[in-house]
Amino acid sequence: MDKVKKRFLFFSIVSLIIIIFSLIAPYLTPNDPYETNVLLGKLAPCKSYPFGTDSLGRCVLSRVMVGAKTSIFSALVLVFITFAFGTLIGIISGYFGGIFDSILMRFVDILLAFPSMVLAIAVAGILGGGLINAMLALGLTAWTTYARLARSHVLAIKEEDFIKAAKINGSSKTAIMFKHLLPNIIGPLVVNATVQIGSTMMGIAGLSFLGLGVQVPHAEWGSMVSEARTCFQLAPWTVFGPGIAIIITIMIFNCFGDSVQNILDPKHKAKG
């Protein structure tokens, strides 16, 4: 097994462990993540509170563990939905072409013209806070990259002989799109999706940090950093706990995305 495959195996296992951990973590918390105790506020890390406590006396470690599920799963769900929707639009647009394609792509251009985070803040602000609204706000622009990518790959292969052969063999347009085009372009799209997991988590955490995502007292890493910001100088561990969790998780998912990209690289395939 070569280096690329080893890296891929390592990061897929680590990512899987993180996902499984986020699912079972709520049952493993050392303390109740929502129990406030003003007397124990801003406690430095100790034996019973390994990451210390925040200004309301809640256990930071427990809250980080509970928040993992929200942060990771909201990102995964959002990436999956935008991936599926964007790919569908891209394939249809690329395959049929013509006026439909032009209109759709100008719409994509408009969405891409806005800085995505600024647009998300505006949309989330209009819709009001909440996790679902934050995901909607981020999803509004996120699907465009998949649509663009899928369209360009469809344009590249739709003139190939096997597509013509499929047409001559009586395949319907739907069959050509989903049985012949999709499997041939899915590689780069999956790579894009895995790379997007990290930045989507960042986006959700960012919106929560601004108070536009997950609402207090619900635990989520971004909103935890935001809450803890006020007492950063007195109790820096309240920021470090969720902050480090964000950094590590995003790094692992990004590395996973990189390794998927490497393993699907045709040059690597040719060698293997």
């Binding site: 052969a165 012949h180 499997p183």
Partner: peptide
């Protein structure tokens, strides 16, 4: 119809 590029006329 059969094509010039035989391998390319089948979905890989």
């Amino acid at each position: 119809m059969i094509f010039q590029n035989a391998v390319g006329s089948f979905d890989s």
